[in-house]
């Protein structure tokens, strides 16, 4: 009994040692684990933000081309006046992802640059190439799960949550666009 009583004051000291050892071990394990998790993130060569220049001199009104930026497809499209007029009539409040005509063409009116990556699950929507189906709204149509986009790349129907993403880009001259 006497032993048990003298041992009592030791218990908080023991607890502290257990907790400190455990915490030290947990932090160390987490630190050791991190490189094994982080190695799966995009490597430096992938991360390096490559810029892409696109010559758009050959694009007529109503035409589009496909190019690649950061290993993702990009559509560069020149809209017709009729398509723009039609798009102006749409009430932005009724859209799933509310973007105006000006917001879709922030750099130059008439020129739409957006990623050819469906915001649902990443397929390449059809509609940029000649003779491809353009969907019920005359823009782009994703064949994987049936998302319909309008000529400005805005989601109108189907499972995709957002409009086609607009990458950062500038016009370096009247005929060359730099993406990135």
């Amino acid at each position: 009994m006497a032993d048990a009583q003298t041992a009592q004051p030791d218990i908080p000291r023991r607890d502290f040692l257990y907790i400190a050892t455990g915490a030290f071990g947990a932090v160390g394990t987490a630190a050791a684990l991190w490189p094994f998790i982080n190695q799966m993130n995009p490597a430096a060569n992938v991360r390096a933000l490559a810029k892409t220049e696109v010559d758009v001199s050959a694009i007529e009104e109503g035409m589009a081309i496909k190019t690649i930026w950061q290993s993702k497809p990009v559509f560069v499209k020149r809209l017709t006046a009729a398509e723009i007029a039609e798009a102006e009539k749409v009430d932005v409040a009724t859209l799933r992802d509310k973007q105006t005509v000006a917001e879709r063409m922030p750099v130059k009116r008439g020129w739409l640059v957006n990623l050819g990556v469906c915001t649902h699950l990443g397929c390449v929507p059809l509609g940029a190439g000649q003779g491809e189906p353009k969907g019920d709204y005359g823009g782009f149509f994703c064949p994987c799960h049936g998302s319909h986009y309008d000529p400005l790349g805005r989601i109108r129907r189907g499972p995709a949550p957002l409009n086609l993403e607009i990458p950062p880009y500038t016009f370096k001259s009247d005929t060359v666009i730099e993406i990135g």
């Binding site: 995009p42 992938v46 290993s71 990443g122």
Partner: peptide, 10 residues
């Protein structure tokens, strides 16, 4: 991006 190790499968 962590799963595919890039911006698209590569």
């Amino acid at each position: 991006q962590w799963l595919v190790g890039g911006f698209a499968p590569d």
